[in-house]
Design a protein around this nucleic acid. Structure first.
Lengths: 234, 234
DNA sequence: GAGTGGTCTAGACCACCGG
DNA sequence: CGGTGGTCTAGACCACTCA
C-alpha cells in the first residue's frame, strides 16, 4: 500500500467513524505530519486526493475542512463502476440474462479497438439497488484481456473479479451520456413504457496501460437512478 | 501564473496545435524537464493535471501518450459551467427572460446556506448552442457575493464576469442529475411536449473559501445536449 | 537490464486568511 | 502580523514495461 493512499484512507476513516459534520476543521498539516509520521509532501498528496473525491476542502491560509456529505440516494457517477474504493455503498445485485462469447459488431469493435479476429464476452443484465430496478446494462469485455467470465461472476461484481482475479489494473474511463426516449424493446426491462425517459450512459474502461477492455451501455430508470459528481478547479 | 499550470498549458497547446493523434508518445520526463526548465516534480504535477483532464495518459515504465480526442458534439460535463480553461468550445449564446433580485425560497436558501435576511439574483434563461436550444436554466446567485448582475451579463458568461470582474475564486462544485419527464410548463421552452424526456441537472458552485454562491437548475434538451466525462483512478 | 514513470523526503519560499 | 495551505526544488529510490 502506498503511503499517500494509506494516509488518505486513514484520514477519511477518521472523518466517517467520528461522523464529523461538514465544516469541521481538521488538524493542520504540521499536525498531520506528526500524526502519520510522513513527509509534508505525502500529506499534501493525500489531502489533494481526498479533496478531489469530495471528502474535504482546503482553504489556503485558513485550514482543512470536512466537505458536505453526499446527498442521500444519489450514486457517485464517477465511482459507479470502476473506481469505488470505499464503503457505505448501497446494497446492489444483478439479474443476469446471458453471458456469451461472440465477435463484436462494428461499433463495439471500434470502441474496444479490437483486432479483426478478436472475441468479446457479451453480458446482458438488470442492475438492482435495494430491490428496485436501477438500470439495464449491456456490456462487452475483450476476451484477450478478461479471459473468462460466467453467470455467477456477472451476478456479483465483474469489476472486482477483473481487478482481483484477472489482475487487470484499471486506469481510466470515458463516459458519454444523455437523456433518451425508451423504445419498446428496452422499456419492459425497466418496468416502463415506450416513450418514457431514461438516462443512457456509454462507458469505455481502459487498463492502466491504456488498452480498452470494457464497453458498456447502461439505460437507467428515470425515477430510480440519480447521480452526483463532485468537481474541483485545482 | 503558476509554473505547473503554465507547463500544463504549453504541453496541451503543443498537442492541439500539432494535432497529434491519439497514442502519440510525448518526450519523456527528462526531456520535458530540459524543454521547460523546471524541476521533475513540477513536470509531474503538470502531467497529472493533464491526465485528470483527459488530455494524456501515462504508463509507468513505458511513456506518456496523447489520449483519445473528445467525441464530436459532446460537452465536457465537468467543465460545462465553471472550470473551462480552454479553447475549442462550441459557440453558445443565451436568451435571457429575467434578472431579478428576490429572497430565496426554502430550497434555494438551504442549498446556498443563506442567512435569513439575504437576497439572491434569480435568472431565467435559455441556453443555445449553434442556434439550437440546449437547455433551460434557472439560477440563483447570492447578492452578498455577486453584488451586481444585469441582462447583458447574463446574455454572455456569468461565470467569466463573476471570476474576472467580481474577483470571486471558484473552488469546487456539486452536481446532481437524473432523467425526468418534462412538464407542460417547461416543455415549450425547449420546443418539446409534456412527457418528453430531459436531463435535469442541479449544480451548486462554491468559492475557493468554501462558500456556496450559485445554485442552478438546468433542464437539457434530450436530443441536443450530450455530455462526456473523463475519469481516472489515480 | 535499460529506460521510464511514480513515490517519498527535507527544506526553502510564496500566497492567502483572519485577527 | 502569525498561522496556514501551496509551490517548487534536487535528489534518492521504487515499480513497471519491454526488448
Amino acid at each position: 500500500m502506498l503511503k499517500y493512499q494509506d494516509v488518505a484512507k486513514k484520514i477519511q476513516q477518521a472523518i466517517y467513524q467520528q461522523n464529523l459534520p461538514k465544516g469541521t476543521q481538521l488538524p493542520n498539516i504540521e499536525g498531520l505530519i506528526q500524526q502519520y509520521q510522513v513527509s509534508r509532501t505525502t500529506i499534501i498528496k493525500a489531502l489533494n486526493r481526498l479533496e478531489r473525491h469530495g471528502v474535504i476542502y482546503q482553504i489556503q491560509g485558513s485550514g482543512i475542512f470536512v466537505r458536505q456529505p453526499k446527498k442521500q440516494g444519489y450514486l457517485n457517477f464517477l465511482e459507479s463502476h470502476g473506481f469505488s474504493v470505499d464503503l457505505n455503498d448501497l446494497p446492489g445485485s444483478s439479474q443476469v440474462f446471458n453471458v456469451d462469447v461472440m465477435q463484436p459488431n462494428v461499433k463495439v469493435k471500434e470502441y474496444l479497438q479490437c483486432e479483426d479476429d478478436e472475441y468479446v464476452y457479451y453480458i446482458k443484465r438488470l442492475r438492482l439497488v435495494e430491490g428496485k430496478v436501477y438500470g439495464f446494462e449491456q456490456s462487452y469485455y475483450r476476451k484477450k484481456i478478461v479471459s473468462y467470465l460466467n453467470k455467477e461472476i456477472a451476478e456479483n461484481s465483474i469489476f472486482s473479479y477483473v481487478k482481483d482475479i484477472c489482475k487487470v489494473n484499471i486506469g481510466f474511463s470515458d463516459k458519454y451520456f444523455k437523456a433518451i426516449k425508451l423504445d419498446e424493446d428496452i422499456a419492459p426491462y425497466l418496468g416502463l413504457n415506450a416513450g418514457d425517459p431514461a438516462l443512457c450512459v456509454e462507458e469505455i474502461f481502459y487498463t492502466s496501460s491504456g488498452e480498452p477492455f470494457d464497453f458498456s451501455q447502461i439505460i437507467y430508470h428515470y425515477d430510480n437512478a440519480k447521480f452526483f459528481v463532485q468537481s474541483h478547479s485545482k
